[in-house]
Structures are given as C-alpha cells and as structure tokens.
C-alpha cells in the first residue's frame, strides 16, 4: 500500500540530490550555449568545409541516444588520459549534446528573420559587424528564448540518465532511497514530483521571459 510518510521522507534526500540535477543541466546549457554559438557560426559560414563540419557534428549528436553518448564519453576520458569525476563527464556530454540542438535553434532564429531587416541595414551603409550586433543578434536571441528554455527542460529530464554513471542526482538518489526503504513507488513518485516542480518553474520562467521580450 502507498505510504504517505515514506513518500514525504523521500523528499529531503532527493532535494539535496536536486543540486546535482541542476548543476548538470545548468552547466550543460551554459557550456552548450557557448559551443552551440561556435557551431552555428560554422553552419552559417561561406566555406563548404566548415558547413560540413557543423552538419556532421549536429547530425551525430542528434542521431545518437544520449545514454550511449554518455557511456562513450565516460569510457573515453580515461583512455585519453583524463581522469576526472563522473560528474565532469556528465556535464561535458550534456553540453556537447546541447550544443547541437542550440546551434540549430539559433540558426533557425537567424534564418527566420526577414531578409529586409539586413537589407535596411546594408542600404543605410552599416558595417556587417554592426548589422550583426545591432540588428540580427538582438532579434534572433529574443526569438530563441522560448526554445532555449524548452531545451533546458529537456536537459533537466535527460540529466536523469547520468544516474547510470553514478552521479548522485535526483534519479540516483531515488534509487538509493528505494533500496534502503524497500518503497520504490514512494521514492520514484517523489522523484517525479521534484522533476515536475523544477520543470514547471522553468516553464513559468520561460513564459515570463517571452512576455518581457515581446515588443
């Protein structure tokens, strides 16, 4: 039978573990934004070679399940002589996978701008650098905010997979809790509630930002 007290008891250890969920997904998206910006620049470059590099990067990272990528990175790092805690591998994998999606989000946002926006800048005699920093990027970034928030929500959920390599985040902690109390239903339900709470907050943040950015 469902035990309310063990359900409630599970929240304290899981909330502690949520720090790692937030760390992995938060750092993941932050680094993903940086790498994604580079990939996006390559994808929009005039050189065919750079465009191909970007296309392969995006296609590989979007084609391979995150769990598989996580294990590849986890076993690759020691082989190439990098001995770091599992959480570093988790953050690296998350960031790299996120970069593929983020670069596509930004590319899409930039391509979605009407051509006339840059034409007006060119016609007035603006330098390409100014038309990027003043006209294109401010609009593309605002346009991409809802999708970036959505990506962050996806990452929070995907971070449950790093439990597999032993990072003590929400899912791993709920497994531990279930193992100790023999109450898996309550432990996993508590985990689900915690994820839901985080994601509802992020969704609300997204709506607020979208509302603020809308001109």
């Amino acid at each position: 039978m469902f035990s309310l007290s063990s359900f409630l008891d599970a929240f304290w250890p899981l909330t502690m573990a949520a720090r790692y969920t937030l760390l992995v997904s938060g750092l993941g998206i932050a680094l993903g934004l940086v790498i994604g910006a580079f990939v996006c620049v390559l994808a929009l470059s005039k050189s065919r070679v750079w465009r191909t590099v970007a296309a392969v990067w995006v296609s590989y990272l979007r084609g391979v399940p995150m769990l598989v990528q996580l294990l590849v990175v986890f076993f690759l790092l020691p082989v190439i002589g990098i001995d770091v805690p599992a959480i570093v591998g988790a953050v690296v994998t998350t960031a790299i996978v996120a970069s593929a999606y983020i670069s596509e989000i930004w590319r899409g946002a930039i391509m979605a701008l009407p051509k006339g926006q840059t034409e007006a800048a060119i016609a007035i005699g603006m330098r390409p650098r100014d038309s990027w920093t003043r006209i294109i990027l401010p609009q593309a970034v605002a346009l991409s905010i809802p999708q970036l928030i959505n990506e962050l929500i996806l990452l929070v959920k995907a971070s449950s997979l790093v439990s597999v390599v032993g990072v003590m985040e929400i899912t791993r902690a709920s497994q531990a809790q279930a193992g100790v109390t023999f109450r898996p239903l309550e432990a996993y339900l508590a985990a689900a509630c915690l994820y839901l709470a985080i994601n509802l907050c992020l969704a609300a943040l997204g709506r607020w930002l979208e509302h603020r950015m809308a001109v």
């Binding site: 926006q117 034409e119 007006a120 016609a123 330098r127 609009q139």
Partner: peptide, 24 residues
Amino acid sequence: APRRLRQMRSTIGMVFQQFNLWPH
C-alpha cells in the same frame, strides 16, 4: 571595396515596400 560601397550607400536613402523597420 566594401568600405567605399558603404560610403556611397550612406548617401542613398532607401524605402522598402515592407518598411523593414527594426522591431526591437
């Protein structure tokens, strides 16, 4: 040269069918 082209364009005003104002 791009710089000279920009210089010439800056003395030619253009008005578009779709206005092309910057919405932000």
